Amino acid sequence: MGPDGVSGWVLIECKEQLLDPIWEMITSSLNEGRVPLEWMRAKVITMFKGRKATEPLNYR
């Protein structure tokens, strides 16, 4: 479940119905040159890949 509370399963099952509305939102955003504030929020978590923990390139 994502931060929006929507299960990934729901998105997969409803992909055909969601395709056009999502496409319209993204296209409109690009044409207007604006991004909704909700799209700028993200949970960024670094994941350690291994080797030296002090090297930034060892994270993804």
Rank of each mutant, 00 (worst) to 15 (best):
L30C: 02
L37I: 13
I26R: 10
L57Q: 10
L18T: 00
D4E: 02
R51I: 09
G8W: 04
E55V: 11
V44A: 07
P21Q: 07
T54A: 12
S28C: 05
K15P: 00
L57C: 07
W23D: 11
N31Y: 03
L19Y: 08
I12L: 10
P56V: 14
G2K: 00
L57K: 09
I22W: 01
N31M: 11
A53E: 13
I26G: 03
Y59C: 04
E13Y: 02
Q17C: 06
V6S: 05
V44H: 02
K52A: 12
Q17N: 13
G33T: 10
T27F: 12
G50F: 10
S29K: 11
S7R: 03
R34C: 04
N31D: 06
A53W: 02
L19Q: 14
W9H: 14
R60D: 07
T54S: 12
N31C: 06
P36A: 15
S29D: 04
G50Y: 08
P36M: 13
I12V: 11
V10N: 00
Y59K: 10
K52D: 15
S28E: 15
M40E: 10
F48V: 05
V35K: 02
M47Y: 14
D20L: 13
N31I: 12
K15T: 00
R41Q: 06
E24T: 13
R60W: 03
D20V: 06
W39Q: 08
G8Q: 07
E32W: 05
S29V: 02
C14I: 04
S7F: 00
E32H: 13
G50N: 08
T54H: 08
S7H: 03
Y59V: 04
D4R: 01
T46R: 15
W39K: 05
Q17S: 12
G8T: 05
R51E: 15
S29I: 09
E38C: 11
G50W: 06
K43M: 15
Y59N: 04
N58F: 09
S28D: 12
L37V: 15
R41F: 07
A42K: 07
Y59P: 01
N58E: 03
E38D: 15
N58Y: 11
E55T: 06
L30M: 11
M1C: 05
G50K: 06
A42F: 01
K49A: 08
